[in-house]
Simulated assay, not measured.
Amino acid sequence: MTDLTDLPDLAVRTHGGTVMAASDEFFADKENLIKPEPPTFQPHTFTPKGQQYDGWETRRRFGRGEGNDWVVIRLGAPGIVRAIDVDTAFFLGNYPQACRIEATGAEGYPAVDDLTDWFELVPTSPLAGGTHNVFTVDCPVRVTHLRLHILPDGGVARLRVHGEVVPDPRLLTRVPFDLVATLNGGRVTDCSDSFFSPPSNMLQPGESRFMADGWETARRRDDGHDWAVVALACPATALIAELSTTHYRGNFPDRVSLSGSSGGSEWFPLLPQTRLQADTTHRFRLDGDRPITHVRIDSHPDGGIGRFRLYGTPTEQAVHGLVERWLNALPESQAVAVLAAAGLAPVPRPVADVTDLVKPLLA
């Protein structure tokens, strides 16, 4: 998975993203920007405001005044942005001439007017109509909010913000920790098949909404079976597995098994082959007591799994690693605020040894 657009979408609605505010949304609603499904278009579908578009579209500003339109998005999964896709699908005579994208990192849930310290992720760049406009981002800072400027006005169908999730370790201690959840940093690294839908769907938050919202493989006609490998958010001991076949009634796996690995190459059993039921959420206690970095789901022989959860306990070294990555990736102003809230003085970054910081930060 080398394509940056294969990385999780940090802003998508299904990951908890929300569109907080926009300068204007006269022709089409700002919330459409982060819908998970691809945009669609039906010609000759007119509302009192004109042709209906599946995206965000502002009224005409050019030649009528100064400035440009903008929209602010709170990421559902804060992290390090690697690529941004400004998708102008179906916007042909009404797409923006250019865009500029800013980001910031903030504590808690501030209002739009309280967001400060914006910095640039994508400089002013031309856009093409009716296509994906993908911009590579080279910025190692963890961000929580994005601001998309369109110059001067127009319509954007979808905004995809691909990157690496950097979870807040303060929210992962002393609570059940889903080691494979996308929002916590879990990710699929390989699979045997994803004909109908990708295995990354299994790691999404919430219950599977419909059949294509899970992982479903093609029908097998050989003596093999399907599988997917998931890298955990951090090294940990897995204790409970939850596998949901919600909406899969005539196409669920007959059996599943789970294996663990420390490194992703040599595997040992976590759960033996176990029969599943249709449209059911199954929970299994695991026997393994060895820390793992990867888990492999074996689906015998094929079929669909809606959601996969793996609850467990991070190793002490892993907790230190989570804190180190998170603290070093924070914007400077947020890092100062985080340390001050824990009763700590500012420290030079990057911090190589967080041993003395872990306990007060996670208290």
Rank of each mutant, 00 (worst) to 15 (best):
R283W: 00
L357T: 00
G250D: 10
W215M: 09
P348R: 08
I84T: 02
L127D: 01
G108Q: 07
I292E: 02
S200I: 05
R283V: 07
C234Y: 00
T58N: 02
P314I: 04
W215T: 07
G79D: 07
R255F: 14
E57F: 12
D69R: 12
V143K: 05
R209W: 05
S192C: 02
P140D: 06
F210L: 06
F135W: 04
P169L: 08
P235R: 12
V137A: 12
Q97M: 09
A77K: 07
V156P: 04
A28F: 10
F41Y: 15
N94T: 08
L10K: 05
P269W: 06
R61Q: 14
E107N: 07
D87I: 01
V122G: 06
P43T: 10
T173C: 10
R283S: 13
T58M: 00
S125W: 05
R283E: 12
D114A: 15
P331S: 10
T237V: 15
G154K: 13
D254C: 02
T173W: 08
G55R: 05
V188Y: 08
Q334G: 01
H15V: 13
E120T: 15
A318V: 03
R142K: 11
H145N: 01
E324V: 02
L92H: 14
P152Y: 11
D193M: 04
F252G: 00
C191N: 11
M1V: 12
P235L: 07
V256K: 08
